[in-house]
């Protein structure tokens, strides 16, 4: 099953199971079914609870918060994650604050979906990874879609947190298969963490969110075949707050964090800090950060690939970490 189909099925399942659930966003209605077809079939099956909105990201996120405030479950789609900037106030100053600023916990079941990332030639304002702009906001959890995490289960986990969640969906995953991995690797789950490796004592551990997983796996394959370097990939579903404890048993002496975000104030920087606090003595050196260049994301394919972190960036970073 393709990741997009799995996500679509998750939304069908959510609307089916939860009579208070709403899905709203721009162009989400059938027959169009969303810019990336993730909401396909929803409005036919659940008319009235799937709502097409004007091009008003701030308002549609506010409406989602209002629905959540009155006890409903609200899933808002931001057509391109870049546009979540237009909903920043609703997310930062209203929804996430409301969870705790009224003195006692006010649970809100609300997810804002953000199709994310580059690699498709959409250019500087339609290709960004916005995760880092939301790291560290009290009352807001960040999740990222992954081929190794069933989206229905992820939605259940997000909604059970009782606080607004942003769900980042790397667009390049939509057309890829769920659980797709070269047979040379073994895949297992430890709670919410996906662990993918070749052996029990890898040379290096790479932490990467879902969108970076397949690029990391591609790098891991060439590293073992060409360099005899064995890596382990850890894919968390929730990026923030990060469950560091769940990662500790799977770490080694060399750790990297790989993400597509452009340089500066990255999620990986936060992960590195958390790990340094816990396992500094066990590391051979500081946690290495792999990310895209400090740049806008160009449109032309040859320019875009120079900016974005990919298989070769990870490959090189691992070699450098191990062999200098």
């Amino acid at each position: 099953m393709r990741v997009a189909e799995n996500l679509n099925a998750a939304l069908h399942g959510l609307l089916d199971d939860d009579p208070t659930a709403y899905v709203l966003g721009e162009d989400v209605l059938d027959p169009y079914g969303g810019a990336f077809k993730i909401t396909k079939g929803l409005s036919m099956r659940f008319p009235g609870r799937v709502i097409g909105t004007p091009i008003s990201e701030g308002a549609l996120t506010g409406v989602a918060a209002g629905l959540a405030l009155t006890g409903n479950t609200a899933v808002a789609e931001i057509m391109f994650g870049d546009f979540v900037a237009l909903a920043f106030d609703q997310i930062c100053n209203f929804a996430s604050k409301s969870v705790s600023m009224y003195g006692k916990r006010l649970p809100l079941r609300m997810v804002v979906r953000c199709p994310t990332g580059g690699g498709r030639g959409y250019g500087p304002t339609h290709s960004q990874s916005m995760q880092k702009h939301f790291v560290g906001m009290p009352g807001l959890s960040l999740y990222e879609m992954s081929p190794f995490h069933d989206n229905r289960a992820v939605f259940t986990a997000m909604l059970q947190r009782g606080e607004p969640c942003l769900f980042f969906e790397d667009k390049v995953l939509y057309t890829r298969q769920m659980d797709q991995v070269d047979p040379m690797f073994r895949v297992r789950r430890d709670g919410e963490l996906a662990v993918i490796d070749l052996e029990d004592r890898p040379d290096c551990v790479i932490i990467a969110p879902g969108g970076m997983a397949h690029r990391t796996l591609a790098a891991m394959k060439t590293l073992v075949l060409q360099q005899e370097i064995s890596c382990r990939l850890l894919v968390p579903s929730r990026l923030y707050p990060l469950d560091v404890d769940a990662m500790l048993p799977h770490l080694g002496e060399v750790v990297l964090v790989a993400e597509e975000s452009t340089a500066g104030g990255t999620w990986g920087g936060e992960v590195a800090h958390l790990l340094h606090e816990r396992v500094w003595d066990r590391l051979r050196g500081p946690v290495r950060l792999v990310h895209s260049r400090a740049s806008v994301i160009p449109t032309a394919a040859h320019l875009e690939s120079e900016v974005l972190a990919g298989e070769s960036t990870i490959h090189d970073a691992v070699r450098k970490a191990l062999r200098g």
């Binding site: 409406v63 209002g66 405030l69």
Partner: peptide, 24 residues
Amino acid sequence: HRDRYLSTGVQGESLPVAAGVALH
């Protein structure tokens, strides 16, 4: 925030939220 009363300190922010509540 108390029962069905809620105030916020950012101008205009509550209107879309109120629209969502009104929809409900």
